[in-house]
Every structure is written in C-alpha cells, then in structure tokens.
Amino acid sequence: MSKMIEIKGLSKKFGKTEVLKDLNGTVEKGQVICVIGPSGGGKSTFLRCLNLLEQPTSGQVTFEDSDLTALNEGQLNQLREKMGMVFQSFNLFSNMTVIENVKLAPMKVKSMSSDDAQTLALKLLDQVGLKEKADVYPASLSGGQQQRVAIARALAMNPDVMLFDEPTSALDPEMVGEVLKVMQDLANEGMTMVVVTHEMGFAKNVADQVWFMDGGVFAEKGTPTEIFDHPQNERTQDFLAKILEA
C-alpha cells in the first residue's frame, strides 16, 4: 500500500490554547480511518488541518508527496480538488439547485462543459439515490438528503480521499442510516476516507483503523477490534464505557 496522507508533528493553537499537540499518523491508499473521541478533543480541527481549512501552527501534512503547509494559494487549490470534504452542517450552496451544486466545481475548477457536468452530476445523484431531486433547491430537502447531495458534490471532483466531519451528527436519527449506507458503499468501492464520527457501529464495521483522540492527542490507535474490544488506554476505556451506558 502507498501513503496517501502523512501527518508529522502537527500542532494547532488558537491564541494560547493548544488544540492539537504534536500529532503523527499515516493514511494509506484505500484505507478507512475513523477518528473517535469525546467532544472538544480536537477531532474536527485535526480533520480541517488535513486540507488546510485550518492553518496548522506547526508540523507537516503531506498529501500525495506534497507538503501542503509549504504550498502557495494556487497549488493548494489544485490539491484541494483531490480531497473531498463533507461537513456536519452539509453547507450546500443555498442559491443553487441540487444539480447546480454538484456541477459547480467541475465546471469552474476543471472547466468541464455544462453537458458533461450534467451527465456526471446525474450519475452521482443517482448513486446517492437523489436523481429525482436534481432541480429543487436544498432548502426543500431533509437533512439526510442534503448530506447525500453534499457527498455527491464532493465526489464530482473525483477526489482521491474523502474527509467526513461528523457527517451524521446534525441529522435526525431516522436519517442517519441513509447517509451511512452511502458512505459504506464508498468504502466498499475502495475510496480512501478519514471520518470523524460518533457512530461507533460504523467505525466498528467499516474502519480499517480507529484513532481515538482526546485532549489534542491520539491517545490510542488500532484496528476496530483492538480499540473496541481490548482498549489499552484508560481514557479510551472510560470513553467507551460512557458511550455504551448511553
């Protein structure tokens, strides 16, 4: 397997608060990494540092052999195309229809023709089961539907890796399943994924690696079996105990 993302000595401070402390890690091609841990532990900030939505205070993020922290604006835009991101709050463009949301980036960034982008978008919307919603505005969709469109929108750039930032946290419980299903299908197709999540079931079944994060550090890393069945770290044990109680 080849390295997709390599994180070296990554730190992030907001003012004097150190949110991430000297993180290291490697994401291999085709791997699904689930990042779990208590709220406020730095999971989202870590994910946002991977495509530099958040500028790391120090350390390196290497993506496909390029050190992102050393790139200029234009080069960074080119690499971001290859890193799809899905947000907790969907962030669909409210001024565009569903299909326009999906078509925008291929047309603007890759200069794809409107017709080609239309074909591509319809294929992706079909893949997430929302072909018939192509011409409505996002505001008329349910949360689960919006998140599936957001996934289709990210896939339209044909990314090498997908970053998910708590994709199901803002959803009503009955809609979590439809989004996880789409993500699971993606994983089965071999997509490299980094998923920040509270869905322990998903992490257990889909992840190749589970990284447990607390207090700005990876307290424990391992396979789902190692983390969920034989947690070594006290904080991991504590966290999982609380989750299971609930």
Partner: peptide, 16 residues
C-alpha cells in the same frame, strides 16, 4: 453568509 459556504467552496478547489 455562513462561513460554511465559503469552506465548502474552498474544499472543492474553488479559488477565492
């Protein structure tokens, strides 16, 4: 305009 809109666009590779 919510910052998430900008972040979503930037994460897709759109320039400023």
């Amino acid at each position: 305009v919510p910052i998430g809109q900008t972040e979503a666009a930037r994460s897709l590779g759109l320039s400023k």
